[in-house]
Design a binder for these strands. Sequence first.
RNA 1: GUGAGUGUAGCUCAAUGGUCAGAGCAUUGGACUGUGGCUCCAAGGGCUGGGGGUUCGAGUCCCCUCACUCACCCCA
Length: 416
Amino acid sequence: MKYSALKGVHDILPPDIYIWQKAESTAKEIFSAYGFQEIRVPIIESTDIFVRSIGETTDIVEKEMYTFPDRADRSITLRPEGTAPVVRSYIENHLYNLPSPQKFFYSGPMFRYERPQKGRFRQFYQIGVEAFGAAEPKLDAEIISMLKLFLERLRIKELKFEVNSIGCEKCRPDYKKALVSFFSAKVADLCPDCNRRYINNPLRILDCKSSACTELRKGSPKITDYLCKDCQSHFEEFLSLLNILHITYNVNPSMVRGLDYYTRTTFEITSEHLGSQKTVVAGGRYDRLVEEFGGPATPAIGFAIGMERLVEIIKNVNPEFCILSPKVFIAAIGSKASTEGLLIAEKLRSKGMQAELGYDNVSLKSQLRRADKLGSNYVFIIGDDELQSGMIKWKNLKDGSQGEIGIRDAAEFREL
RNA sequence: GUGAGUGUAGCUCAAUGGUCAGAGCAUUGGACUGUGGCUCCAAGGGCUGGGGGUUCGAGUCCCCUCACUCACCCCA
């Protein structure tokens, strides 16, 4: 094979593409109902946009970005996530002057230079939403509810909703201190990675899967015990609204996000159908980011759906998901009949009916065989007899019934 | 970046170091002159991922390399 796709990227082909289209159109429909409008932002941005928002010491920025100099030697990065570009656009276009909250959704490819595995790719697709200008927990709950509806519409069940609050710039430092002092006596026994985390991001120790660290963090302080008064009541109201909305969730105090910009509410939706990369949706509040980017102080919240993972789940739970539209197949014998068939097909198509032609002047048998394989519902048969009589034959491939219809009326054909 | 596993036909997989590398599915054609699905028959399709080595002889053993997969890590 001379050429192949790059590592970690992939083609999306039929029949999978129908699942993608269904997921995308469903997202658009549901998100619109909640007042989210589509926004399209560039795939390339200045590198510093991502460094500033995601955080200099995160893995994404340190070793996973596709960063390169352009011809004028500016540092450009292929977006590794969607929030930063949307925030940049929100500020640059002064969207904060529009009535709050402003709600957007986006969809498109993201790029991270990672080692591929199940559910993880170098070019992957996300559909995400970002809502600016409302701090109330009502918005947080609404967004979770929207996700629930979206997933139900795709007939996906048995997902786990996990929520947490990671506090704000007032209370998180206290928690960090408590955590550091808790682990100070145990640093030596933590895994090498966690030794590094102990210095630059102690919260991540909670996330570590190594058995030693899992053991060592038993009894560690919980973020939820350290929340300041405001964060505490925000979180409590959020949870009570989830109850009112009949959303089943699990509070997971050790769920920390890998991007630095998150504050307060964080959440994740996971599935057992995904191997070790089981997060299909993740998001949270980022109440400080707009201001840090040079905009007015604006609370915000968002999430992103991993499309490959979503499609993987759909394929697992609902393999029959995509329904083929009815098709008419026109089998013609002889060149005159073939021309007639072409004209009928064109008329059907102009009315929006999917019509397929037999090619290559092959036997009727193989044309029918092909019609069957395409999943056609009906076949029109045109040959010398039909041209003479002016009546063409139709056959229903699903139940085998047959009949005749005038050549002129064939274009008016509706499911009989 | 680290580790493990796997590379043979379009796909899923066989083949003790020993004829010409096989099967099922798929594709195409035929049995059936103008009626699909079922059945039967046949055909096409392979530099056994690539390179080197051991051997009288390598798909098989050894080394290198590339690719894929899964896991660690990280994340959606």
